[in-house]
Design a protein around this nucleic acid. Structure first.
Lengths: 233, 233
DNA sequence: CAGGAGTCTCTTGCATGGCAGAGACCGTAG
DNA sequence: CTACGGTCTCTGCCATGCAAGAGACTCCTG
């Protein structure tokens, strides 16, 4: 599955393009729905169209861009329905990760999760949302990697890329009281994990994801009452 | 995510190559681990290397082949660990599908599931394993499509392709008594779905997948005692 | 006979050019 | 003014050629 995010150690030129473009898309640097021209990108990177083309093709199978034959390549903009679906998957996978991690017993990731929680407590206490957002990212990351299932991890990263999740987290944390609530839920999950109660850990983790989704959707621009010409999809 | 299996309606030549090669790989027509030469395939399909190359690249991101730079392209052979991981994912996704389907209420897929079960009963009764294997395939398919979550479906199909699952099913059904047991478990799942008991449906479905996995692994050639030159990884 | 270095061929990686479809744009007719 | 037809340019699609890395093979040497 190659890597869904990390290693750009591959020196091949198309790998570079893939990594770079993926970064731009999930960071929102290029606007969703925007067109991507093979030729323009090739010139920008100073390479030929072939590797660019192959890079875009891979990004398509990752769900980040859409290639309309003979028309052009565009950054995908998840529809509302897709976002719902993606969150259902997120809930599923993170729940499973919690269960798997609980089953593994005492592994280093658990220690790091507890350290993470301590830092997070501090960040919440001084209302440092920026830092807390980072810690949340690390928390979920530790959970996934701690599950020790490469397939799960690969699919998870793919989904998060499609959601451009890193962009969204901050939105949800701007809901008043959400950071504190979120932090508490994290504590509960880790507690259940160290108790090796996989069933409960999964259940609570799922609930946490649902709560996080609600908080996030509440802060989005197009909830359900779009003023005249707002909604595009 | 394009389609992970179905529509070859796309007239583009590389789409044809992708569909064809995917079919060959999951059917086992080309031996796992075997090399795939761009040039050879290009000649066989009567096209240039470019579309073949792009097709292989997509199959790589689907996890069906592995491209070793400057060396060659090879059909991936899931290691024992990967098989375990894939089954964990299968359990997860099918369990979730059962839950989601239960939550949806009365939808056509449920009717078709019940029809499927009737046919399956008959097939089991007359010990028609061939037909039962087909029905099992349809059963799981209905479950997934019935969940009405495209992301889930896409990821599921990708995983099943990596497992070359269609090849494996028959193995598991050769375990004595397995078809009957399997059929019973299917009945129970559907029953729970029509009762809209999503929690139980998910749980039972998961257990069913685990049982199916055990039956399957028991019938595999390389359990733990590989005769001299059999095991390759 | 064994080991190592060199070469030689095979593979993919990348660049480039021609082709065809899709859509925008403009001119014209009603 | 509006609607239609043609063209024109832009896009990705595919073919081909060259280059470079990896691995096998051979030949030379100890």
């Amino acid at each position: 599955m190659t890597e869904a995010t990390g290693g750009s150690a591959n020196s091949s030129i198309q790998a570079t393009v893939i990594a770079e473009m993926r970064g731009r898309i999930i960071s929102g640097e290029i606007e969703p729905g925007g067109p991507l021209s093979e030729l323009a990108l090739a010139e920008e990177f100073g390479v030929s169209r072939t590797p660019v083309r192959e890079a875009l093709k891979q990004l398509q199978t990752e769900g980040l861009v859409e290639i309309r034959p003979r028309v052009g390549t565009f950054v995908t903009t998840p529809s509302r329905r897709e976002i719902t679906e993606l969150f259902e998957m997120k809930e599923l996978l993170e729940g499973a990760a919690a269960r798997l991690l609980a089953q593994r017993g005492r592994v280093p990731e658990i220690d790091r999760l507890q350290e993470n929680l301590e830092e997070a407590d501090a960040a919440v206490a001084r209302d440092d949302r920026e830092h807390y957002a980072e810690l949340v990212g690390e928390f979920h990351d530790l959970l996934i990697t701690g599950a020790d299932n490469n397939k799960l991890e690969a699919h998870y990263r793919m989904l998060m890329n499609q959601l451009a999740y890193s962009r969204l987290v901050k939105t949800s944390l701007n809901q008043p009281g959400r950071p504190l609530q979120s932090d508490r839920e994290h504590h509960l999950v880790v507690e259940l994990i160290v108790e090796k109660d996989g069933d409960s850990a999964e259940q609570v983790m799922r609930e946490h994801v649902r709560a996080s989704r609600r908080a996030l959707m509440a802060g989005l621009p197009t909830p359900g009452s779009p003023p005249p010409g707002t909604a595009r999809d």
